[in-house]
């Protein structure tokens, strides 16, 4: 299973951190510190696996962003590359040519997308289209709710006006 997912910028800033195994707040910041140190300093031609406390951390670099996933010894490290890539493709489709700023300002959207791809540290869906459909459906529901709220407000304000 995937124990955690981290998105780290080249400057070492955390853009997204999702924990599927239990880590206390202290451990979490320690993990981020240790891993960003090791991963950011690795040369690009080296293999993209880092051994870390009995886990393997698989990472892939997209422009200035490192996507890291931590898996156990029995997991298929090569498959993780495809999962990472799948996630990045989803972000790209959703935001349309995603850049780091999208993730900064819409970090919650990045989490929503991740939640549709991975639950409980396991891959949930192998189809890009299905994931995007789900996200769009969510967004539509939020938009409808807002619409309703604003019409309701309008009605109330009109009623109170007269």
């Amino acid at each position: 299973m995937i124990h955690f997912v981290l998105l780290i910028s080249r400057q070492g800033k955390v853009r997204l951190a999702k924990w599927y195994s239990t880590f206390s707040a202290k451990e979490r910041s320690k993990v981020v510190r240790e891993l960003s140190g090791t991963i950011l300093s690795r040369e690009p031609e080296l293999c993209q696996f880092v051994h870390w406390r009995g886990f393997t951390v698989v990472y892939k670099k997209y422009a200035g962003l490192y996507v890291c996933m931590c898996v156990g010894q029995d997991d298929n490290e090569l498959e993780i590359f495809d999962i990472i890539h799948r996630y990045v493709v989803l972000l790209d489709c959703y935001f349309g040519n995603v850049c780091e700023l999208d993730l900064v300002f819409n970090f919650h959207k990045a989490y929503y997308i991740l939640d549709e791809l991975i639950v409980a540290g396991e891959l949930q869906e192998s189809s890009t289209r299905t994931v995007l459909q789900q996200i769009v459906a969510h967004d539509v529901m939020v938009a409808v709710a807002r619409e309703e709220a604003s019409t309701l407000n309008n009605i109330i304000s009109q009623v109170t006006q007269y």
């Binding site: 999702k18 924990w19 880590f23 206390s24 989490y111 929503y112 939640d115 529901m141 939020v142 709710a145």
Partner: peptide, 20 residues
Amino acid sequence: PGFPEKRIGYLGLMLLLDER
């Protein structure tokens, strides 16, 4: 009751809390 509130509430729950 609303979906938007629940959505952000669950996200906050997963982010700000851990199992312990």
